[in-house]
Simulated scan of single mutants.
Amino acid sequence: MAQGEVLAFEEYVRTRQEALLRSARRLVPDPVDAQDLLQTALARTYGRWDGIADKRLADAYLRRVMINTRTEWWRARKLDEVPTEQLPERCVDDSAEQCADRALLMDVLKVLAPKQRSVVVLRHWEQMTTEETAEALGMSAGTVKSTLHRALARLREELVSREREACALEREERERCAA
């Protein structure tokens, strides 16, 4: 890569790093994994930087690399989770309602398949249009719409289910205290 291209890439990373890290953070729940995801995507993009003719599309290109990398990681993950009858209580250090809502949302997003999660993140967090999302993910606008519809329905189901579980646990606790 020519020296000018190296400098251009370094400047791009310097100016867009925070926004790109936010995108990575929305794709993977763990902050350390998000940093790893961004670094991996930047390393992969660096080798192809001179091939991006229109640098205004660099964000879209990098998001696509992050999504592909996250999908690779998801497929290669070791499944050592053990299903249980009840979910453990979720501990929230900060009592602020906004932080609790964000933590719940990040946790609930885990029930979505990677494709669904990507569509939700790009449409609702990144505020991309349907067409921009379709282009970033390499799918048709109709597929984006139907995937988003199914993903939001799945999220609603999960939230209702969790609310029912919380009410049942609360009722059991009241009955125990009354006895």
Rank of each mutant, 00 (worst) to 15 (best):
W125D: 14
R63G: 11
T147E: 00
D80W: 12
L159D: 04
D50Q: 07
T133F: 05
A141R: 15
W74C: 14
D36T: 00
T133Q: 15
V92D: 14
D93S: 02
E165I: 03
L122Q: 03
V111C: 00
L79E: 04
E85T: 10
A153P: 00
L38A: 01
L79A: 03
S161I: 09
D50A: 12
V82Y: 00
C99Q: 08
S161A: 14
P114Y: 05
G4A: 15
R77P: 06
Q98L: 10
R16W: 03
W73A: 10
C99D: 09
R90D: 01
P31I: 00
T133W: 01
R26C: 01
G47R: 10
A151H: 05
E135V: 13
E165S: 13
E81S: 04
A141N: 12
R117N: 06
L137S: 02
V28S: 05
R102V: 13
T71P: 14
T15D: 14
A43R: 13
A8H: 01
L62T: 15
G47F: 00
E175W: 09
T84I: 02
S161F: 11
E172Q: 04
V6C: 11
L57F: 15
A8I: 00
D59R: 10
W73I: 07
L159Y: 03
E163C: 15
R63H: 15
M128L: 11
R154W: 12
E72L: 03
E157L: 07
M66G: 04
G138L: 06
E165G: 10
Q127M: 09
D33Y: 06
P88D: 06
R14Y: 04
E175Y: 04
V6Q: 14
V108Q: 00
A151K: 10
D80G: 12
R102I: 13
R44F: 12
Q86C: 09
S95E: 14
T84E: 02
C91S: 03
K110Y: 08
L87K: 15
A41R: 02
L87M: 08
E175H: 06
R48M: 05
Q127W: 05
C99R: 12
Q39F: 07
K145T: 07
A103C: 02
D107T: 08
R77T: 08
V28Y: 13
E126W: 03
R171N: 06
W125C: 03
E131Q: 03
V32K: 06
C177A: 09
T147V: 05
R25P: 05
R150V: 15
R16P: 08
E172A: 10
A178K: 14
Q3G: 10
L20W: 01
R22V: 02
Q35K: 12
L155I: 11
A134M: 04
A166S: 14
L20N: 04
R26N: 10
L152D: 03
A58E: 05
N68Q: 13
A19D: 15
M128R: 13
T143M: 10
R176Q: 07
A166D: 05
L42I: 11
Q127T: 15
D94I: 12
R156K: 14
V65R: 01
A58S: 09
R14A: 02
M139A: 04
A134T: 00
L27G: 07
